[in-house]
C-alpha cells in the first residue's frame, strides 16, 4: 500500500559529461533525441543509486526516470521547493541535489497533471 502522501516525479539524468536535456540549446525532436540519451549502463547505475535511497522507479526512458516515494523522502533527499515564478505552472522541483547524486541528477520535477480537452 503506497503511503498517503506519496508523490510521483520526473528525475532528469545527467550524461557522463554532466549535461542533460535541460541544457539542450534546441528543442528535443525525433531528429536529435537519439544523440541525447544516456547509455544503458549509466541509466542502470543511476537507477540503482536512486532506488538505494528508497525511491521506487516505475518507468524510464533514455533521459529521465519516473520515481515515487513519500513526500518526506523527497524533501529529505532533494529539498523540494516550488518552481520559479518565471516557469509557469510548475509544481515542485529539487531545491538541491545531494553530493552523492550531483554527478548523475540534473533536477527532479513534480509536475501538475495535464488538462484534458473534452
Amino acid at each position: 500500500m503506497p503511503p498517503a502522501d506519496e508523490i510521483h516525479a520526473q528525475l532528469v539524468m545527467k550524461r557522463e559529461d554532466g549535461s542533460s536535456i535541460l541544457d539542450a540549446g534546441q528543442p528535443s525532436t525525433s531528429e536529435n533525441i537519439g544523440q541525447a540519451g544516456l547509455p544503458e549502463d549509466r541509466i542502470a547505475r543511476i537507477r540503482g543509486r536512486v532506488e538505494a535511497l528508497g525511491f521506487v522507479v516505475s518507468a524510464q526512458d533514455p533521459n529521465t526516470l519516473s520515481i515515487s516515494g513519500a513526500r518526506e523522502l523527497f524533501d529529505n533527499v532533494f529539498a523540494m521547493e516550488p518552481g520559479s515564478a518565471d516557469e509557469p505552472s510548475t509544481g515542485l522541483h529539487a531545491g538541491g541535489i545531494p553530493s552523492e547524486l550531483s554527478d548523475f541528477v540534473a533536477d527532479v520535477f513534480v509536475t501538475p497533471g495535464p488538462e484534458f480537452f473534452p
Binding site: 520526473q10 532528469v12 536535456i21 535541460l22 539542450a24 528543442p27 528535443s28 525532436t29 525525433s30 536529435n32 533525441i33 537519439g34 541525447a36 540519451g37 526512458d61 533514455p62 533521459n63 529521465t64 518552481g83 516557469e87 509557469p88 505552472s89 510548475t90 509544481g91 522541483h93 533536477d107 520535477f109 509536475t111
Partner: peptide
C-alpha cells in the same frame, strides 16, 4: 515564453516515441 525546464522531459519523451 519558452518551454520550461519541467516540460523538457515531456518534450524528450514525445521525441523519443516518434524516433
Amino acid at each position: 515564453t519558452s518551454i520550461p525546464n519541467w516540460l523538457k522531459p515531456l518534450e524528450a519523451a514525445v521525441a523519443n516515441a516518434v524516433a
